[in-house]
Design a protein around this nucleic acid. Structure first.
Length: 896
RNA sequence: GCUCGGGUGGUGGAAUUGGUAGACACGUUGGACUUAAAAUCCAAUGAACAGUAAUGUUCGUGCGGGUUCAAGUCCCGCCCCGAGUACCA
């Protein structure tokens, strides 16, 4: 009987969706298990083979945990606000909602083809107003909260103690300055091309994370989230999480805690410069100060004589993009302000400079430069001929030294250990009221506004400068229609052009709405909570449901979200926790990163400045340019069919082609992407081999966390294995399983497999599970095992991996219930004990022979055995045996 | 530059955490079935050397040292690849 995967898979997919097999309800009698995938952005190119890797893994865990008696929540939704749909809308004029909905339908169809056990009744979309109502609600919670530094937690703004003697306006300003969501005029990352501001996390190497467009610094009025208040807690609680160390480390680095001192350098009665340093021990080596160009003091402290050069420098550096700044790291620039300040410890008068190697956003935006012990200061001092003093002893005099040692050139402190001296300096500064020990973080507040259309409107109105939050009952604040989705070059949002929406008349009073929208990350900060109670219109989720389901037990997704999404989501969750809306401080207990599946791109080569394409084996003699071609046009591995290429695009139609016999292309591994024409869709593979084969193959490819290029070479092996598995239960005439007593060896191999699969699933080692199944099936077929006892258990064991084929077989055992509701088999240790074992013994690597021992044999038995053997006795090769080494009941070696 | 991962057959990858390295799969080769091909099944397959053969010996986990009866695994010093990060004072 043939394994007809097509009809089997559609049959069971229909069955599951019709019977809502995976619908989940709260059930206090069972332990819960929450398995979450990072929900996808529904892009226009649909699913590629990389997406399912994580989804299949989470599905295996879900199905496995259900069988283990857990009440498993396994939902799916869509992160449907975002730039690509909007960029597409700008190009075509089509509303992002339309394209997003079409894309979502396509995604769902593709996901269902894989046999994933989602509870689709819980589906959510972040762009639905019934969803973003609550995103806006949480925004207002942040707006109406402050961070209580003493209690180290967020509280409602009404509990904020307001200092006495403030007038109404000052009071308002004071409150606004404490809110967790606040408005600020700050230097932001402005991306001209995208027409929007980006968060620090969204800028990579001076270019936008999406699209790779240049980004410049520019001051703008923005909504900002006070994530810095949570820096210490975000860092501390990492310890409690079962996450990959690498991800924890990148979050730790991103938060960037450093301990040091804040030091005040006085200029005169009215002016001073505060700096942050991690090296207060080098205070005697501080020979000048440096301010960031954006620092307000820069202009203030500049003398008349130096004004024109300083102004010039500040303007120039503001025009530089982050990328340009980074390019010139080696070549430092700067100007002298003309002012001097007093070193609070050495009392020396030192010059104040301005340079763009000092960042305005970190610390106080000013540093004390110690050229003797900091490489950047050293370079700067060399270039501008500033004084360099060594204050820590080291061998290479005159060079920069960043290590530890004995203090020198520091007056009465000479000879001290520099680490000890740190404390002394801090104490001294405290005494002088000119500084103290401080902790600084790299983490900056999160810029929360985007000048874009396709996002959540911010529920705030303005009465002049006074901010009025939209009342809860008026939520959701619906995203209005606009004439054009284009961002304006002046930095205003497309929403600002819809005047009837922007201007509000309330109780006879005029207000203006905030017209910026929230960033892409807003919706994904809390979606895992909405899954618990997705249709609730009274609250974002009922409290008892949150108490039951949270935290997420396993969260599976790509490592690219290591700092962005995961940090923001943790931050929001902590705020909700402080305000009493959720029951724990952390949302994701365990995190698993699946690796990326890479595409195997194909390139053809064009001779530069011609219209001639040339085969890869001939390029040596020409100056050529690499061009991606669609991998679907390849005939076999590296060969291209010119005719199909010509028909694929006009630009290839009339070109010339140079080749010998075959046209060879270059293959290279790259990220899978539509623009690189290297996307492999799972649909084709499902059609040819079936979803079960695809599922097992993706797991078989290698460790889940590892990135690997997609290749189809091994898929027939997995497909053949499934056929073999099918044939265990069937012969030519049909289903054929007997109620006979199982073969002893079959029981052994079965229980070995059960044991291995159980522990391997728990440790997410799915590739070795698949191998274990292959070994088991191979052995059972060579034993010609037909016993229903063994086969039924094997079927159960494999059902999380290949659910369709297993359901089909299970149904033939005459059981009425779905295999999904069956318990997972448990291994019996007694079948695993080997009563005899054979082991080769080696003597110094010279002599080898095989001996058979019983498991419980004693040393004397072995001695007896040895003396029976003519060649071997307790003396071997003339040497006396000292000891025989056992490890776990095995003889490992014999020592003379 | 810094920080984290990795280097195992022709290929993807196993190895109970110090105990027979190369499981499982792909590929290759040979064989069976077939007029033929595909599909399927069986066998061999780390390298070198010896032997008609069964088999045996030596070498083998990026390179060089070390610890140990025993090292892919632990320690020291290098080389290479990948990822993240980047003037964070």
């Amino acid at each position: 009987m043939v394994y007809d995967f097509k009809s089997i898979e559609s049959k069971w997919q229909n069955y599951w969706s019709k019977n809502k097999t995976f619908k989940t309800e709260m059930d206090q009698s069972k332990p819960k298990y929450y398995v979450l995938d990072m929900f996808p952005y529904p892009s226009g190119s649909g699913l590629h083979v990389g997406h399912p890797l994580g989804y299949i893994a989470s599905d295996i865990i879900s199905r496995f945990k259900r069988k283990k008696g857990f009440n498993v929540l396994h939902p799916m939704g869509f992160d449907s606000f975002g730039l690509p749909a909007e960029q597409y809308a700008i190009k075509t004029g089509k509303h992002p909602k339309l394209t997003t909905d079409i894309n979502i339908e396509r995604f769902k169809k593709q996901l269902n083809k894989l046999g994933l056990s989602y509870d689709w009744d819980r589906e959510i979309k972040t762009s639905d107003s019934s969803y973003y109502k609550w995103t806006q609600w949480i925004f207002l919670k942040l707006y109406n909260s402050f961070f209580d530094v003493n209690e180290n937690k967020a509280k409602d703004i009404s509990q904020l103690e307001i200092p006495n003697g403030l007038n109404e306006n000052e009071k308002m300003q004071f409150i606004d300055s404490k809110r967790l969501a606040y408005l600020d005029n700050i230097h932001v990352n402005w991306c001209e091309e995208l027409g929007t501001v980006l968060s620090n996390e969204e800028v990579i190497g001076g270019l936008s994370e999406r699209g790779g467009h240049p980004v410049v610094r520019r001051p703008m009025r923005q909504w900002v989230m006070r994530i810095t208040a949570y820096a210490e807690r975000l860092l501390d609680d990492l310890k409690t999480l079962d996450w990959p160390e690498s991800i924890k480390l990148s979050q730790k680095n991103w938060i960037g805690k450093s301990e040091g001192a804040k030091i005040r350098f006085v200029i005169d009665k009215n002016a001073f410069v505060d700096v942050f340093t991690t090296r207060p021990d080098t205070i005697f080596g501080a020979t000048y100060l440096v301010l960031a160009p954006e620092n307000d003091l820069s202009i203030k402290l500049t003398t008349k004589k130096n004004k024109s050069i300083v102004d010039d420098y500040i303007t120039k550096s503001s025009q530089k993009s982050d990328l340009e700044r980074q390019e010139n790291v080696k070549d430092k620039t700067g100007v002298f302000t003309g002012s001097y300040a007093i070193n609070p410890i050495s009392k020396e008068k030192i010059p104040i400079w301005i340079a763009d190697y000092v960042l305005s956003g970190y610390g106080t935006g000013a540093v004390m430069a110690v050229p003797g012990h900091d490489e950047r200061d050293y370079e700067f001092a060399k270039k501008f001929n500033l004084k360099i003093i060594s204050v820590i002893h080291h061998k290479n005099e005159g060079e920069c030294y960043t290590g530890n040692g004995k203090i020198i050139n520091s007056g009465k402190f000479n000879g001290l250990d520099n680490q000890k001296f740190k404390k002394i300096v801090c104490d001294k500064l405290r005494e002088l009221k000119l500084g103290e020990k401080t902790i600084n973080y790299k983490l900056r507040d999160w810029i929360f506004t985007r000048q874009r259309y396709w996002g959540e409107p911010i529920p705030i109105m303005f009465d002049g400068k006074i901010k009025i939050p939209v009342s809860e009952s008026a939520l959701p604040l619906e995203l209005p229609e606009v004439e054009s989705f284009k961002p304006a070059s002046d930095g205003s949002s497309p929403l600002a052009r819809n005047k009837s929406w922007k201007n509000v008349l309330l109780n006879g009073k005029k207000y203006e709405r905030e017209t910026n929208t929230m960033p892409q990350w807003a919706g994904s900060c809390w979606y895992f909570l909405r899954f618990l109670d997705p249709r609730n219109s009274k609250s974002f989720a009922e409290k008892n449901k949150i108490d039951y389901w949270m935290p997420v037990d396993v969260y599976i997704g790509g490592a690219e979200h290591a700092v962005l999404h995961l940090l923001y989501a943790r931050f929001w969750h902590k705020v909700l926790y402080d305000l009493g809306h959720v029951s724990g401080p952390e949302p994701f207990k365990k995190l698993v990163n699946q690796g990326m599946i890479l595409g195997n791109s194909a390139f053809i080569h064009r001779i530069k400045n011609t219209n001639t394409y040339i085969s890869y084996d001939l390029i040596d003699e020409y100056d050529v340019q690499k061009i991606n071609v669609d991998i679907d046009l390849l005939t076999n591995n590296n060969e291209l069919n010119i005719e199909t290429l010509k028909n694929s695009d006009i630009k290839f139609k009339n070109a010339e082609y140079m080749f010998n016999e075959k046209f060879i292309v270059l293959r290279e591994v790259e990220k899978m992407s539509k623009s690189k024409f290297n996307v492999v869709s799972p649909d084709k593979i499902c059609d040819k081999y079936g979803a079960d084969t695809l599922r097992m193959y993706e797991m078989f490819l290698g460790p889940l966390e590892q990135s690997k290029p997609w290749n189809m070479d091994g898929i027939t092996g997995v497909h053949n294995f499934l056929k073999k598995f099918w044939n265990l239960f069937h012969d030519e005439s049909g289903f054929n399983v007997l109620d006979t007593k199982p073969n002893e060896n079959s029981l052994k191999i079965l229980h070995k497999t059960i044991k291995k699969v159980n522990s391997d699933i728990e440790s997410f080692s799915f590739n070795t599970c698949v191998s274990a199944f292959m070994i088991c099936v191979n052995e059972l077929s060579s034993l010609n095992e037909k016993s229903s006892l063994v086969l039924r258990n094997l079927c159960l064991l494999m059902s999380p991996f290949a659910p369709h084929i297993c359901e089909e077989i299970w149904s033939k055992f005459g059981k009425s219930d779905s295999i999904s509701n069956q318990d997972f088999p448990i291994h019996n240790e007694s079948f695993l004990i080997e009563d005899k074992f054979e082991y080769p013994i080696s003597f110094n690597g010279k002599l080898r022979f095989k001996m058979i021992f019983k498991l419980d044999c004693e040393y004397s038995d072995i001695e007896k055995e040895l003396s029976h053997n003519e060649k071997v006795s307790s003396y071997l090769n003339g040497k006396k045996i000292k000891k025989i080494i056992f490890v776990k009941n095995k003889i490992i070696n014999i020592v003379f």
